[in-house]
């Protein structure tokens, strides 16, 4: 016990010292380096249209109109709430979860004019871990493409080319999985439509 009390002095001083070093100096230095070398990325890879911030390249957004590609279901707040990232945390056999998947699958088939027993891509009917997944699978995007093309009066081939352009491949061809960035794709389609009209 005596040695414990004797050690309290260095304990107190060291906690203060390390708080300044690791809690102030370290994040400040990292921020300084980040802000100078990778300014846009350090600030959230923000996307601007006509000078207005319309989102982040890395954060998904909710789309409901038929002319837009739709993101995955989201459990973040009311959907893609950037201030409340979350998964559903449903267990694999939770009846609420299975009912939600069945409902989403039916809605997805109807929206995209698929047969009532057509298989739907798994990412289209499940919520991501963050609730902010910026991507959908290529399979999911291809199934939505005819609907989007029709709503926008664009050729299907034009929309498919846009999908290819906004597919983020695996890093170095190996790391991670490919996905279509929904926000960037939709913004590009808006540009295309604006150019056409």
């Amino acid at each position: 016990m005596r040695s414990f009390i004797r050690q309290l002095r260095p304990a107190l001083i060291s906690v203060v010292f390390f708080t300044v070093l690791l809690g102030v100096a370290y994040p400040l230095v990292a921020t300084a380096i980040g802000q100078v070398l990778f300014h846009d990325k350090a600030n959230g890879s923000l996307v601007r249209r006509d000078g207005v911030v319309v989102g982040s390249e890395l954060i998904g957004q909710t789309f409901v109109a038929p002319e837009y590609f739709h993101s995955r279901p989201s459990a973040a707040g009311a959907g893609y709430d950037g201030s409340a990232s979350s998964g559903s945390n449903y267990g694999p056999q939770n009846p609420d979860f299975l009912a939600a998947v069945a409902e989403r699958a039916a809605a997805y088939r109807e929206e995209n004019g698929l047969a009532a027993d057509a298989e739907v891509p798994v990412d289209a009917v499940t919520a991501s871990g963050s609730g902010l997944d910026p991507h959908i699978s290529i399979a999911n995007a291809r199934l939505q493409a005819p609907r989007v093309a029709e709503a926008r009066g664009l050729e299907l081939s034009v929309v498919l080319v846009a999908i290819g352009k906004h597919t983020d491949d695996r890093v170095l061809g190996v790391l991670g999985e490919p996905g279509v960035n929904v926000l960037m794709l939709n913004l590009a389609l808006d540009d295309l439509s604006a150019g056409a009209s």
Partner: peptide
């Protein structure tokens, strides 16, 4: 940071939704 992990002292940035 070089890959897009954020490092700033901002609160929330308000973005206008596209749809």
């Amino acid at each position: 940071i070089s890959q897009g992990v954020v490092q700033n002292f901002n609160g929330h940035t308000v973005a206008t939704a596209v749809d």
